[in-house]
Nucleic acid binder design. Structure first.
Lengths: 273, 273
DNA sequence: ATGTGTGAAGGGGTTCACAGCG
DNA sequence: CGCTGTGAACCCCTTCACACAT
């Protein structure tokens, strides 16, 4: 079992946010495994964390139902996701926590540490450099780079801040494949280009800009304002809906609208918009 | 135009990360507009930012092609997305930058400011409090809360740090609907529960935990480690593929494999995994 | 008897390609 | 003629429901 799957030999190297990249013509799935769906890839880290939490709590075995609950998904999705990796469970029993944890870590590629460079040591870069979750989750910050002359040599989280001039050397020395961009928006593209030229092929972008990168380079974007705006959109909808319900109630009479499950948010705070 | 669409009268109040929420039985699309797809909602803020950039650059009109390029999507997707909002373009011409910008801002709900509370003023909370992009993008930080007694009263970004005890008062006073959780993982659920109890119905979670919330509350998660792990997965694939190519080349002879578009990453850094 | 692994059905989202308006 | 707006095809993902292994 677990061998005969590889439905489509398609590869799709960049699944993240490189939408306009070339379609990758030939390149059949020669090496590696069976093309895990991008949506599944995005959830594997969540499962990994849930498994680590279970292991820390002393749990040695769990069902798909339990793990799914811990990861915040439904069990069918979890089982389908895991099925892309292989048959790591035991029917009628469940999954061995430690074994599954290792398998997922191996699949993601975090059984060893990835060296990472952080560029832009402002408030955010500072926070990232100090984030202790890195080490335990497969990453090691090997250098901090910043443009400001004044800050060169300053120690942050046990590392000295170095200038952009050192970028190429750092990437080469440590074999850095992943770069974190935490610069202001107007410097981001420039920094990105330089990282890519130095050999970095994955970038995590915190700057509020769209980064253009050549095919073969993955970019993922983390944008605070965008996340808040998405929440604001839904929040506005809720407020409108609550208002509509009131209007409906008044106009169409007491029609017993079957609202349930949508607790009209405390009217006292729908003051905005 | 723009009126006769509402294909499905379904509402789907929480599109973000509340996967296990009840299916919302009745509740026809009485109030508000025509149910914009979640994927589109997630891109509207990107368009908004691109339009703002264009406006700042003095551009008054743009085609779907230009705007799409600025937003990092393809033009078909952009046009489809905008079509859910209405017909705001002119055929044969394009879009009026300022007009479209306002329409999207209105749709998202950021024509007025949303009051926001940040809970957990560690390294990250500090950075978030100092982030200036808030004000300009529809949000206003009204309070900073932290558990540490020692830090009470300390000024961060012009605001005093207050204790958790003030949470309910702050939410009520400012009509806060959106809360940002930047606490350590083990405090996050507790803080979340308290925010929700106080009336907050949208939460942006930076803590590396899955938050459980009642139906009607939206949670969005920003998780650094997960983003990096997703990049690591693809990075590993690239390395495996590059390796496979080499093996193929050696075993199957010089078959002219048509690699292009996938620049084999500098071999010097494929040292991991 | 229990819970995994998986075909099959169903729903969204993306892309295509062109009708239609300016 | 140019570019928007949109039906339709296509593809991916989620969900269902159950066969099957233990």
């Amino acid at each position: 079992m677990s061998a005969g799957r590889r439905t489509a030999p398609q590869v799709r190297a960049s699944g993240a946010s490189t939408p306009e990249s070339a379609p990758l013509p030939g390149t059949g799935g020669a090496a590696g495994g069976a093309a895990i769906p991008e949506a599944t890839v995005a959830r594997l880290p969540v499962y990994l964390r849930a498994l680590t939490a279970l292991a820390d709590a002393g749990t040695t075995t769990c069902s798909s139902e339990e793990l799914a609950a811990a990861a915040g998904v439904n069990s069918a999705k979890l089982r389908k996701d895991l099925s892309y990796l292989g048959s790591y469970g035991t029917r009628g029993v469940g999954y061995d926590v430690e074994y599954l944890r290792y398998q997922i870590a191996r699949e993601i590629g975090v059984t060893q540490d990835w060296p990472v460079v952080i560029v832009g040591i402002g408030n955010l870069g500072h926070a990232l450099a100090n984030y202790s979750g890195f080490r335990s989750r497969g990453f090691r910050v090997v250098a901090l780079l910043d443009a400001a002359e004044a800050r060169q040599g300053e120690q942050v989280a046990g590392l000295p801040i170095r200038g952009f001039d050192d970028l190429e050397a750092v990437v080469a020395e440590h074999g850095v494949a992943i770069g974190v961009v935490a610069t202001p928006a107007d410097a981001a593209q420039q920094v990105c280009d330089r990282l890519v030229a130095a050999g970095v092929t994955s970038i995590l972008n915190f700057a509020p800009t769209v980064l253009a990168v050549p095919a073969g380079v993955d970019v993922r974007k983390v944008d605070l304002s965008i996340e808040l705006q998405i929440l604001a959109f839904h929040e506005q909808r809720k407020a409108q809906q609550a208002l509509g319900q009131i209007v409906d109630g008044a106009a169409a009479g007491p029609a017993e609208v079957e609202v349930e499950a949508v607790p009209v948010p405390d009217a006292g705070k729908a003051v905005i918009a």
